[in-house]
Simulated assay, not measured.
Amino acid sequence: MRTPSLISFTLFASFVGASFFDQKVAVTLGVMSRCPDALACEAVWNDALPSVKDKADISLTFLATPNASDTDYGVVCKHGPGECGGNIQQLCIQKHGTFDQLWQYVQCSNFEGKDQVGLRDVAQRCATTAGFAWEDELADCVGEDLQGKTDEGRQLLAESAAASKKLNIVNSCTVLINEKIICVRDGTWKTCEGGHEASDFIRQVNEEYNRTNDL
């Protein structure tokens, strides 16, 4: 069997593009699903996504306070139990679906308004929009009532809350690039030295991508 030559490999790399081999930038949004700041932050990132999705791995992590006496979730969510359910819905899609499905679901839920996030009819409608059927793909995670009071749903929320704490996220929305906080939305945009518009986030992702990959 012939061993591929260096020239062949170089031609292949040129054909598929450098991004096939490069390391993507980790973008994390620390949010609460019913928080108005989260909705505002996600709206800006919705504008940025088309320009950075090939260079970034984007994920959501959620804020909640552990509370062993809470028999439904084991945590307390700032905007009430409905937010815990909304958080878990998004975490379940993040785990079992694609990022595109997660983002379509989030944007659909947000469009309904923050107080509607997590409600059963909204969840079902937005799941359909994102290409999911709860009963077929997510039932074990979110449960029959879609509120995430299952072992898996509770565990995902607890793990996400712990991860948010480890990343020193205290406000929704907090934007991190490669685990470094670059911007916070808390009533207004704060500590955003690189800016907070979609173009600013695009620039910062590109800069980190180039730095990480020595471009």
Rank of each mutant, 00 (worst) to 15 (best):
R2K: 10
P4G: 03
S5V: 02
L6C: 07
L6V: 14
I7V: 13
I7H: 10
F9I: 15
L11P: 00
L11C: 10
F12Q: 12
F12D: 07
F12G: 06
S14W: 09
F15C: 13
G17V: 08
G17P: 02
A18H: 12
A18M: 07
F20I: 06
D22W: 02
D22S: 11
Q23I: 12
K24T: 11
V25S: 00
A26P: 00
V27C: 02
V27M: 13
L29E: 08
M32F: 04
S33F: 06
R34K: 15
C35A: 10
C35I: 04
P36V: 12
D37Q: 09
D37K: 06
D37R: 05
A38F: 04
C41M: 14
V44L: 11
V44E: 07
N46G: 14
A48R: 05
A48L: 05
A48Y: 08
L49N: 04
L49S: 10
S51A: 14
K53M: 06
D54P: 02
A56C: 04
D57L: 10
S59R: 15
S59V: 13
L60A: 07
L60D: 03
T61M: 06
F62H: 13
F62W: 10
A64D: 01
T65M: 07
P66N: 07
S69P: 10
V76G: 00
C77P: 00
K78N: 11
H79P: 00
E83R: 02
E83W: 01
C84E: 01
I88D: 00
Q90K: 10
Q90I: 00
Q90V: 01
Q90H: 12
C92V: 00
I93A: 06
I93Y: 01
I93E: 00
Q94H: 03
Q94K: 10
K95Q: 12
K95M: 03
G97I: 09
G97S: 11
F99T: 04
Q101F: 04
W103Y: 11
Q104A: 15
V106T: 10
V106S: 09
K114R: 14
K114E: 15
Q116I: 03
Q116C: 02
L119A: 07
L119N: 10
V122G: 01
V122F: 04
Q124A: 13
A127W: 02
T128C: 02
T128A: 12
G131V: 09
F132C: 08
W134S: 05
W134Q: 11
W134D: 04
D136T: 14
L138M: 13
A139N: 14
D140S: 12
C141L: 03
V142P: 00
V142M: 05
V142C: 01
E144H: 13
E144G: 08
E144R: 14
D145R: 09
L146Q: 07
E152L: 13
Q155V: 01
Q155I: 01
A158D: 05
A158S: 14
A162T: 15
N168C: 04
N168H: 12
N171F: 13
C173K: 08
T174S: 15
V175G: 05
V175R: 08
N178F: 08
E179L: 02
K180N: 12
I182C: 08
V184Q: 13
V184N: 09
V184D: 04
V184K: 13
R185D: 07
D186M: 04
T188C: 01
W189Q: 09
C192R: 06
E193G: 15
D200E: 02
R203S: 08
R203Y: 02
Q204H: 05
V205W: 01
V205E: 01
N206F: 02
N206M: 04
E207S: 11
R211E: 07
L215C: 10
